[in-house]
């Protein structure tokens, strides 16, 4: 039975102030374009992976979380073949998703800026493959247009 929240008509208190930048996943991260350190588009953020902070035990899932358990942290931006699951629901298996470690993220603004080159990331392997196997075989395809 769906019951409305009892505090519906009461003005709610603001969230206690925090020191760092606040990021709402859907507003500031999901679907944002990811650029590498050279400003080259790499991919978009399809999902996010959370994990326990370094040195802490995994956050219990499905059981009561003991009070004082450290909050999980973002461990990776996820990207991958999600077009079908966006339309029909669900998500690809975790193993099919490509991870960009959070430690490679330099800033989050209108776009997500990485602090590393996209050349070493798995996220844009399709683009590299097309460049090396198809574009490069077209006469003039190895010449940099710039």
């Amino acid at each position: 039975m769906k019951t409305p929240r009892p505090l519906g008509s009461v003005p709610l208190a603001p969230v206690p102030p925090v020191a760092g930048q606040t990021l709402d996943a859907q507003l500031h991260l999901l679907d944002r374009q990811v650029l590498d350190s050279g400003g080259v588009p790499v991919t978009t953020v399809d999902d996010l992976e959370l994990g326990a902070p370094e040195g802490e035990p995994e956050t219990p899932m499905g059981t009561v979380i003991p009070p004082g358990t450290p909050a999980p942290v973002l461990t990776a931006l996820l990207t991958g073949p999600v077009l079908g699951t966006r339309i029909f629901g669900g998500r690809p298996p975790s193993s099919r998703l490509i991870r960009i470690p959070w430690t490679d993220v330099a800033s989050v603004g209108v776009v997500v800026q990485l602090g590393v080159s996209g050349q070493g990331l798995d996220a844009d392997w399709v683009e590299r493959w097309v460049r090396d196997k198809i574009i490069a075989r077209i006469p003039g395809g190895r010449r940099d247009p710039r």
């Binding site: 020191a19 760092g20 606040t22 990021l23 973002l74 430690t103 989050v108 602090g115």
Partner: peptide
């Protein structure tokens, strides 16, 4: 909602679930 105030790294600090 996440807040970027966790353990510092080379580029950004950890973003913990607020």
């Amino acid at each position: 909602r996440f807040v970027v105030d966790g353990a510092p790294h080379r580029l950004m600090a950890d973003a913990r679930l607020l």
